[in-house]
């Protein structure tokens, strides 16, 4: 275990010299209840570099989803600041695309239209053909090249989540926020979608924050795993740099001699 921590000093090559994209400063979240305030998050500090993939793990109810929705601007911040690319956020916006746990596609639209609705907002001056090209590019990337015109409701859960991923990337966001994106899928589909996600991410190099409670998923996806303590007054308990080389290959990661050290470290944190 000590050998593992000694290595943590090293810098991940693809992040060398990159500026900070997301800074959470003194974040606090309080829910008022009849019995007094319930403090979910307290004094939470987080800093993520441009192009970094961070996953956040923690027990259910520790406030990791709360943190993510606050970064997205969908949840009010009780104290502190969320700073994206140098300026504090004001509400939600397409610069922070979200992939929700449930695909939340608009069921009356086709796959293409679901992506298009976002692209239209972000690229209002592009021609219709250009917009369509963007949509089709990302749908193709997530493996839906033949299903552009299928209604969202006629797609399986996994397919719908693929559209959700395409929709998020097509916004060309500064930060991609993933709220347990594969939580509702069976393990086979989950694996496939992790590959799809990493594949597109590798090309786009977008800063990404993924919430998960799956230890293997957090290692496979991230450059750095952030471990949150259990609430109330949750904060960041520990973090672990995952230096496996990119682009990643599931087999190579699983066969890496140190994989189980990393896994053990995370499991150890969660079990205490």
């Amino acid at each position: 275990m000590n050998a593992l921590l000694e290595k943590q000093i090293q810098v991940i090559p693809h992040l060398d010299g990159k500026p900070e994209m997301l800074v959470c400063k003194d974040i606090r979240k309080v829910y008022p209840t009849p019995k007094g305030d319930y403090v979910v998050l307290d004094d939470l500090q987080l800093s993520i570099k441009q192009g970094e993939f961070v996953s956040i793990i923690g027990h259910s109810g520790c406030g990791k989803s709360t943190l993510l929705t606050m970064i997205a601007g969908l949840n009010e911040i009780s104290g502190g600041n969320v700073i994206v690319d140098g300026s504090p956020i004001r509400g939600a916006g397409p610069d922070r695309a979200v992939v929700f746990q449930s695909p939340s596609l608009l069921p009356w639209l086709t796959a293409l239209q679901n992506v298009m609705i976002g692209v239209k907002q972000v690229f209002p001056h592009a021609s219709k053909a250009e917009k369509e090209e963007i949509c089709k590019y990302y749908l193709d990337k997530v493996g839906l090249g033949n299903d552009f015109h299928k209604k969202a409701t006629s797609l399986s859960q996994g397919m719908q989540q693929r559209v959700g991923i395409a929709r998020a990337f097509a916004l060309k966001p500064k930060i991609l926020l993933l709220d347990e994106p594969f939580g509702m899928l069976d393990s086979l589909t989950r694996g496939e979608l992790q590959d799809v996600l990493l594949d597109v991410w590798q090309k786009e190099q977008i800063t990404a924050v993924a919430i998960t409670h799956d230890v293997d998923e957090s290692i496979f996806l991230a450059d750095r795993v952030i471990m949150m303590t259990s609430g109330p007054y949750a904060k960041i308990g520990d973090e672990l740099v995952i230096p496996f080389e990119r682009p990643r290959n599931r087999k190579a990661v699983l066969e890496h001699p140190e994989y189980y050290d990393y896994r053990g470290y995370l499991m150890n944190f969660l079990n205490h």
Binding site: A72, G73, A92, R96, S104, Q121
Partner: peptide, 11 residues
């Protein structure tokens, strides 16, 4: 979820 989509897209 739909409302959140609308918020994220700033419709």
């Amino acid at each position: 979820d739909f409302i959140n989509v609308s918020k994220v897209l700033k419709l």
